[in-house]
């Protein structure tokens, strides 16, 4: 059996007494931040990646912020795909936006997800798949909107993984997406073009 043969060959190649397990070191000090500093760092790093970051003072104001932001970016706001109950509860339809529920469909133009957390170190969003936030929302539509709770913006990825362990124990959801900017490619002539296969634009609403 190939499995046992491979493992046996590895054990022959590693005959020495097994070295003690490696102990992971904390994140580099220059990448760490917390509180308001983390929010500022997150915003700066995300904006450097072409992400539009918008502050929303309370959940009820999200619909207005979405409509205003997209209009300013010349993106028509008609139908948004989402499935998160907390977001569906917001008065989005009052803002003349049609909401469609479920996972993303091939011709969806706009989608809205809720991030588990955001990481200041690199301006990244942490999304977890599940019935509320199917991961196709983050890849099929042309424009992806993400909300993140201000209190869940943390300094480093080590903190983000600690949060995942607390929330999910030893059983992660099918997909954890760490998203750092919109889809891009440099494969043609070395020049960066946004919107390769995934969203052309990414908007983050900090609530």
């Amino acid at each position: 059996m190939s499995r046992n043969a491979i493992l046996a060959r590895i054990r022959v190649a590693n005959p020495a007494p097994q070295s003690p397990p490696h102990e992971a070191k904390p994140a580099p000090a220059s990448l760490a931040s917390a509180g308001a500093d983390a929010v500022l760092r997150f915003r700066t790093a995300a904006e450097a990646k072409g992400v539009i970051v918008v502050d929303v003072d309370q959940p009820a104001n999200l619909p207005l912020a979405v409509v205003r932001t997209l209009s300013a970016a010349n993106i028509p706001v008609d139908t948004i795909r989402l499935n998160d109950p907390a977001l569906l509860a917001l008065p989005l339809s009052d803002a003349n936006v049609t909401l469609t529920r479920g996972a993303a469909e091939p011709h969806d133009r706009l989608s809205l997800s809720r991030a588990v957390a955001a990481v200041a170190e690199t301006g990244s969003l942490l999304l977890a798949s599940g019935p509320d936030n199917p991961s196709s929302l983050a890849f099929l539509p042309e424009t992806h909107l993400v909300t993140v709770q201000r209190s869940t913006i943390i300094g480093t990825f080590e903190e983000a993984f600690a949060l995942l362990r607390t929330r999910y124990g030893n059983s992660l959801p099918r997909t954890i997406n760490i998203i750092s900017g919109a889809s891009r490619t440099g494969d043609i002539g070395g020049r960066i073009v946004q919107g390769a296969h995934g969203p052309r634009q990414l908007f983050v609403f900090i609530i």
Partner: peptide, 15 residues
Amino acid sequence: AYTTLATGPRRADDL
């Protein structure tokens, strides 16, 4: 831009 952890197949309630 995308760093993704994939763990097993879709869960029972996944869409």
